[in-house]
């Protein structure tokens, strides 16, 4: 399972996604993540382990964000990996998600 529940304290659920977020994992991720959305009001997803993200993965993130807003869930993305940042920058989506993105100095441009 590439999605781990790291911590659950008070209302906050911290999840992390590992490895790829692509068309191959999209269905599985969607099922797992929508389940978490049903049960929690405050979710943090750690993206630092995402090694590869494609458009299907991105679409899933967009979908989750919209679902979260509709269900008045506080969904934040944290620790964006280089792959995620690259895509966010390409599509200029940083503002859409509204989460602070930390760009590591180690990343190769």
């Amino acid at each position: 399972m590439s999605i781990k529940v790291n911590q659950q304290e008070h209302q906050l659920t911290k999840l992390s996604i590992e490895n790829e977020m692509t068309i191959y994992t999209a269905l599985e991720h969607k099922t797992t993540l929508t389940d978490h959305l049903k049960n929690n009001k405050d979710i943090q997803i750690d993206l630092s382990g995402v090694t590869e993200i494609d458009c299907a993965g991105l679409q899933l993130l967009l979908f989750l964000k919209r679902q979260a807003i509709e269900q008045q869930i506080n969904l934040t993305l944290t620790q964006h990996s280089q792959a995620v940042v690259e895509v966010f920058e390409l599509l200029d989506l940083g503002n859409h998600f509204g989460d602070p993105i930390v760009i590591s100095a180690d990343w190769k441009q």
């Binding site: 269905l27 299907a56 991105l58």
Partner: peptide
Amino acid sequence: HGEVMDPESCYL
């Protein structure tokens, strides 16, 4: 929305 969304279909 919700269940109906097929993550393998492209809506973008």
